[in-house]
Simulated assay, not measured.
Amino acid sequence: MTAPWAEWDHIVKIDPDKTLVEGETFQDVCATGTDALEIGGTTGMTEEKMARVVEATTAYDIPVYIEPSNVGAVVHREGLDGYLVPVVLNAGDVFWMTGAHKEWARLDDDIDWGSTFTEAYIVLNPDSSVARYTEADCDIDADEVAAYAEIAERMFGQRIVYIEYSGIFGDTEIVRAAADAAEEARVFYGGGIGDYDAAYEMGRHADTVIVGDLVHDEGVDAVRETVEGAKDAKSERADGV
């Protein structure tokens, strides 16, 4: 079966703990041309906040997935396409490799396993909230990132390798190393994508470019630029440019 994300060039990640730019709506976000929405965040997650965003976004014709950071923020709603669950490969705290997931399975009897998928995260910005929470070892080079990507796919059967710089624009050589190591797994990239050029540059290496803070800080016009950059990069890759 073809993976839901197989043709996604661009994702908008919406943080339920943050607001949209004044005057903009979730309908505006859905109309940017992005391929999918991920709903989630590292801090401040509650079921009430998550439910509000899920209810608002599933009203439109776009795939919507929750990216859960804790079991208390997971909701089940009609129209939700599923769950993309981070497994942080370079976490220092094993809770973020298996512990959080065990708690979700233990406490939630309504998990739709047919719509639940994992993302093999490699966290690389030591100053980010996700790095601090997971105690991630971010002092790793391109060879090590490539090795993480390889074991994610080959040993653990991961179908998504997520290179996470969260807040800063990452090292394109590291992203390319991960992409070269992953044969069939899809490489997601997130971090510091703020305009067309940044999206285009990372889109030349990663399969899918993700923006998060941009939608909250700059708004839908800026997001639309990144959609164009990611899709232009994908088109050139397909043409062998």
Results as ranks from 00 to 15, higher is better:
P126H: 09
P126K: 12
D127P: 04
S128R: 10
S128A: 14
S129V: 07
S129C: 10
S129M: 13
S129Q: 06
V130Y: 04
V130L: 05
A131C: 04
A131V: 09
Y133G: 11
Y133N: 13
Y133F: 12
T134Q: 07
E135Q: 15
E135I: 03
E135H: 14
E135V: 10
A136T: 05
D137A: 05
D139T: 03
D139H: 03
I140Q: 02
D141W: 00
A142V: 07
A142N: 03
A142D: 12
D143V: 00
D143M: 03
D143P: 06
D143K: 04
E144T: 15
E144Q: 13
E144D: 09
V145A: 12
V145Q: 05
V145P: 05
V145W: 08
A146M: 11
A146S: 08
A147S: 13
A147N: 14
A147R: 11
Y148H: 13
A149D: 13
E150W: 00
E150H: 03
E150Y: 00
A152Q: 13
E153Q: 12
E153A: 09
R154G: 06
M155F: 15
M155S: 08
M155G: 05
F156Y: 15
G157Q: 14
G157M: 12
G157L: 05
Q158P: 02
Q158S: 07
Q158I: 09
Q158W: 06
R159P: 02
R159D: 07
R159N: 09
I160H: 01
V161D: 06
V161H: 04
I163N: 11
E164F: 10
Y165E: 14
S166V: 13
S166Q: 11
S166N: 11
S166K: 09
S166A: 14
S166D: 15
G167M: 12
G167S: 15
G167W: 03
I168M: 06
F169V: 08
G170C: 05
G170V: 07
D171F: 00
D171V: 05
D171R: 00
D171T: 01
D171S: 02
D171W: 07
T172G: 04
T172Q: 12
T172R: 04
T172A: 10
E173H: 08
E173R: 13
E173K: 03
E173V: 10
V175K: 00
A177D: 09
A178W: 08
A179R: 13
A179I: 08
A179S: 13
D180Q: 15
D180N: 10
D180I: 06
A182W: 01
E183D: 14
E183V: 05
E184W: 07
E184G: 14
A185T: 11
A185S: 06
R186S: 05
R186C: 02
V187P: 14
F188I: 00
F188L: 00
F188N: 01
